[in-house]
Amino acid sequence: MQKKIKVMIVDDSSIIRQVIQKHLSEYNIEVVGTAGDGKTAIEVFKKTDPDIVTLDITMPEVDGLTVLEEMMKINNTAKVMVITALSDKATGLKAMKKGAKSFLGKPFTPEKLKESFSRLIE
């Protein structure tokens, strides 16, 4: 059996965390951790060593771009998909420069999420 992809979901909205988990459930994944703020996200990342992280930007404690930098220092092979309402090009470029592999604007449809995720695991 193929090894499950370890996924971590970071968003301060519990609804968005649920939606991401639900739509990605058709993939061979295991959700190893979730976080609703940036500080917790870094702790969970260290503990769970995920293969893929979905990461919001506007969050309490520590913002997502800072979290991304920290994650890349810890393990730069982790693939980070930034999912944010800050959908302007400059933010997208900034995220990619800091190590994100994918950038998806909110609001997103299930199709757009799956399309981005599929590209990420190819």
């Binding site: 301060d12 909205s13 519990s14 609804i15 968005i16 506007t58 969050m59 309490p60 944010t84 309402a85 800050l86 959908s87 302007d88 090009k89 400059a90 933010t91 900034k94 604007g105 909110k106 609001p107």
Partner: peptide, 29 residues
């Protein structure tokens, strides 16, 4: 869930206008 959703709607509507204003338009949680 519905309490969370109203915050997320506010965040998304405000965040999306950055496409017009640029990244100097900062939004809070």
């Amino acid at each position: 869930d519905i309490r969370d959703l109203i915050g997320e709607i506010a965040n998304t509507i405000s965040g999306n206008v950055r496409q017009a204003y640029g990244s100097d338009f900062m939004i809070s949680v």
